[in-house]
């Protein structure tokens, strides 16, 4: 009986870890999602207004996306770490 209790506890822990990992990633994706959307939208607007500056805007946009996206990716790493 004791062994089953221990097994059940292990299973509970695993399930809790899995769902909290899911939550962690979901929460971590909200901010960067909004951020990247806003960033790309503004960049497209800028490119439409000044097509001759499109190259510079695009480079800066990719840099901005890289920095914003890092947050979501850290969330993804946390997801793996918790899920293990």
């Amino acid at each position: 009986m004791e062994a089953f209790t221990i097994l059940a506890q292990e299973a509970d822990k695993a399930a809790a870890a899995a769902s909290s990992a899911g939550f962690a990633y979901g929460l971590a994706a909200i901010g960067p999602g909004i951020g990247i959307g806003y960033l790309v939208g503004k960049s497209v607007e800028a490119m439409a207004r000044q097509p001759e500056a499109a190259g510079m805007v695009r480079t800066t946009m990719f840099l901005g996306i890289a920095f914003t996206e890092a947050l979501a990716l850290i969330g993804f790493v946390v997801f793996i770490l918790i899920g293990l």
């Binding site: 920095f67 996206e69 890092a70 990716l73 850290i74 993804f76 790493v77 793996i80």
Partner: peptide, 13 residues
């Protein structure tokens, strides 16, 4: 750290 994690996590994902 962010350079590493960005590349690694994107590809792993």
């Amino acid at each position: 750290f962010s350079l590493t994690v960005r590349l690694f996590a994107n590809m792993l994902a």
